[in-house]
Computed example of a mutant assay.
Amino acid sequence: MTSGPQARRVTIADVAREAQTSIASVSYALNDRPGVSPATRERVLEVAARLGWSPASAARTLAGTGAETIGLALAKDPRDLSVEPFYMQFIAGVEATLASRSMGLLLQITPDAEAGGEAIRRWRMSRRVDGVLLTDLVPDDPRIPVVSAGGIPAVVVGDPSVAAGLTTVWTNDAEATRQAVEHLADLGHRRVTRVAAPGRYAYTAIRDLAFERAARAAGLDHDIVRTDLSPDSGAAATRTVLSSPRPPTGLLFDNDVMAVAALTTAHQLGLSVPGDVSVIAWDDSLLCRAVTPGLTALGHDVAALGAHAARRLLDVIDGAGPSTHPDATPELRVRASTGRAPAEA
Rank of each mutant, 00 (worst) to 15 (best):
G93I: 02
V302D: 02
D14Y: 10
G117E: 07
L187W: 04
V26E: 00
T238P: 07
Q20G: 15
L209E: 15
E42R: 13
D186C: 04
P5F: 08
R128D: 11
I91N: 06
L105H: 08
L184I: 03
L271N: 07
A196S: 15
G270P: 02
T238K: 09
Y203V: 09
D284A: 10
P274D: 02
D208R: 12
A328P: 04
R41V: 00
L72S: 09
S37I: 00
D254S: 13
G294F: 05
I317Q: 04
D232K: 10
I12W: 00
R17S: 14
H189G: 03
T240F: 10
L332R: 07
S337N: 09
A290I: 01
N255H: 04
V156N: 05
R190F: 08
V156D: 02
C288L: 01
T40L: 06
R121I: 01
A149Q: 15
P38A: 06
A119Y: 00
A92E: 11
V277Q: 08
L134R: 05
T135S: 10
L313P: 08
A180V: 03
D186G: 15
A341I: 09
V181F: 03
R213N: 11
G234L: 06
T265R: 09
A262I: 06
D186Q: 14
R207Q: 14
G104M: 07
A59V: 02
P78H: 15
L72M: 10
N31E: 10
A320N: 10
A13V: 14
R200F: 13
A180P: 07
T168M: 04
G188P: 06
A237I: 07
A259N: 04
L314R: 03
R8A: 13
L51C: 06
Y28I: 01
N255D: 05
H300E: 11
I120R: 07
D140T: 06
D173G: 13
S244M: 08
V169G: 03
P85T: 10
S37P: 07
V192M: 05
S82R: 13
P85D: 03
E212I: 13
